Simulated assay, not measured.
Amino acid sequence: MASHILHLSNIIKAYHDTVVLDIPSLELDYGVYWLLGGNGAGKTTSMKVMAGLIPFRGDILLNGKVSCNKQPVQYRKLVNYAEAEPLYPGFITGSDLVALYVKTKGEGYTDIQKIIDLLGVSSFIHQPVSSYSSGMLKKVSLLLAFTGRSKVILLDEPLITLDTQSLPLLYALVEEFHQQYGVTFCITSHQPVTAGSIRLEVQGKNIVKI
């Protein structure tokens, strides 16, 4: 078994010849990580690179054997990502998105309906996405991140636009998937994510600053 969940090597991401991300080497073991950085620091770009959603130079290995560049389909099946400000085609419904993700990602660790009920999505999931508020969109995005049997879940600004009643429910999901199913998390946030609030042991080694 590989000692590192993710190994980023020689990562270069540039926009119009301007390098915005340069990571010679970064190894992440099993854990919960908080990615720190101000606006424009490259947090979202880092997350999208780790999710294999945008092109970059270099490579990322999952569990020491699945290459982001050489095995992109298998890699993306095992690395889930929830955007900070999700956008979906307005004509589809939340249930359409769930069906697509379940078909693509495969059987999950737990019944997806359980998570739908937990996050309070069932009341609007059959409505077109165009009718959703930003908070509803955020809940659907988070719901989709917990589909399948991923090894890594990347949550970009999961706390913004999320109502205060849903925060402990999200924390409980993170704790369950981390402790029971061995999922590694990488979370970005402008708000403090502490061991007390998230009820997880987030040690100093699990905080990456950019």
Rank of each mutant, 00 (worst) to 15 (best):
M1V: 15
H4I: 07
I5D: 00
H7F: 08
H7A: 15
S9R: 13
I11V: 14
K13Y: 11
A14Q: 14
D17P: 06
V20E: 08
L21M: 07
Y30D: 08
G31W: 00
G31F: 01
W34N: 06
G37R: 01
G38A: 10
N39D: 10
G40R: 07
G40M: 12
K43M: 03
T44N: 12
S46I: 13
M47E: 09
K48C: 05
V49H: 02
V49T: 14
M50Q: 02
A51L: 13
G52Y: 01
P55Q: 08
P55L: 13
F56R: 00
R57Q: 13
D59H: 04
L62I: 12
N63F: 11
G64E: 10
V66Y: 06
C68W: 00
N69L: 14
V73W: 10
Q74C: 08
R76F: 02
K77D: 06
N80A: 13
Y81M: 09
I92H: 00
S95M: 15
V98D: 03
Y101F: 14
V102K: 12
V102T: 15
K103G: 06
K105W: 01
Y109W: 12
K114R: 15
I115W: 00
D117L: 11
S123G: 12
F124R: 04
F124S: 09
I125P: 01
H126S: 15
H126M: 11
Q127L: 15
P128H: 02
Y132K: 04
S134G: 12
K139I: 11
V140F: 08
L142Y: 09
T147R: 03
R149D: 02
R149F: 03
I153A: 05
L154S: 05
L155F: 06
E157V: 09
E157P: 08
L159I: 14
I160D: 12
I160F: 05
D163S: 02
Q165F: 06
S166T: 15
P168S: 06
L169W: 06
L170P: 10
L170M: 10
V174E: 04
F177Y: 15
H178W: 03
G182M: 00
G182I: 02
F185P: 02
T188H: 06
T188M: 04
V193G: 04
T194Y: 07
A195C: 11
S197G: 07
L200V: 13
N206P: 02
K209P: 04
